[in-house]
């Protein structure tokens, strides 16, 4: 449905905004490398089922997300490594990995490798933006491109919420994906303060600065 398609394209847009920023400014300043590595982990653990993905739409997006994320990490770790400031990227990701790992082991739909990794990926994605938001907090401001990147990334999962509501009412056979919905709502909540600042500042053409 339209919400989900808009969400997936918002996700794709966020990746291209980030790529554009890094290549245009020839710098990855203000971008959390830790968050990008977490997203890489999210895609790998979620798309283990890539080989037998039946819908071409999903297949194409999965390939796009994995390949573009790999390229972003290459750019940050190799090409523009000097512009990476690890002293600003100090969030303890082990807490996030522990959080996702614990929930994946406690409440998977089924105790199979695919399902446990899928649940891990869903929970990890819900908190993967924290290092990036934390870095933003520390620097106190961000380039407009970085703010657009985070906004598009946040919008992607926010749009999945009406998608789930729509599917609940329109597809009688649709069973609610409780893990995805719970994590999706948590994820969107984590973006809420950013969205507020983004909406009030950037929409007025101002530079993105925290109050």
């Amino acid at each position: 449905n339209i919400f989900r398609v808009l969400g997936d394209f918002s996700h794709l847009a966020s990746i291209f905004i980030l790529l554009h920023k890094i290549q245009q400014l020839k710098s990855c300043s203000g971008i959390s490398f830790k968050s990008q590595v977490l997203y890489m982990l999210v895609y790998i653990t979620r798309y283990l089922d890539l080989p037998w993905t039946s819908s071409p739409y999903n297949f194409i997006f999965k390939v796009l997300f994995i390949s573009s994320e790999l390229y972003i990490i290459y750019l940050m770790a190799r090409a523009y490594k000097p512009t990476n400031d690890p002293n600003l990227d100090t969030f303890h990701v082990e807490f996030l990995l522990g959080f996702a790992g614990l929930l994946a082991l406690l409440f998977p739909y089924k105790y199979t490798i695919l399902e446990v990794f899928w649940a891990f990926s869903i929970w990890l994605e819900s908190v993967a933006i924290l290092p990036q938001l934390f870095m933003l907090q520390r620097t106190g401001e961000a380039e407009a491109m970085t703010a657009h990147y985070i906004a598009a990334l946040g919008m992607y999962r926010a749009l999945y919420i009406p998608n789930w509501i729509y599917r609940y009412f329109s597809e009688p056979t649709h069973k609610v994906d409780t893990i995805a919905v719970t994590a999706g709502i948590l994820q969107t909540i984590l973006y809420s303060d950013f969205f507020w600042i983004y909406y009030t500042k950037v929409m007025r053409g101002e530079k993105f600065k925290l109050p």
């Binding site: 989900r4 993905t53 039946s54 819908s55 999903n58 695919l114 998608n163 994906d177 995805a180």
Partner: peptide
């Protein structure tokens, strides 16, 4: 975009 068993969303 239905998928058997697996998850049909990205």
């Amino acid at each position: 975009k239905k998928e058997e068993g697996g998850h049909d969303e990205l």
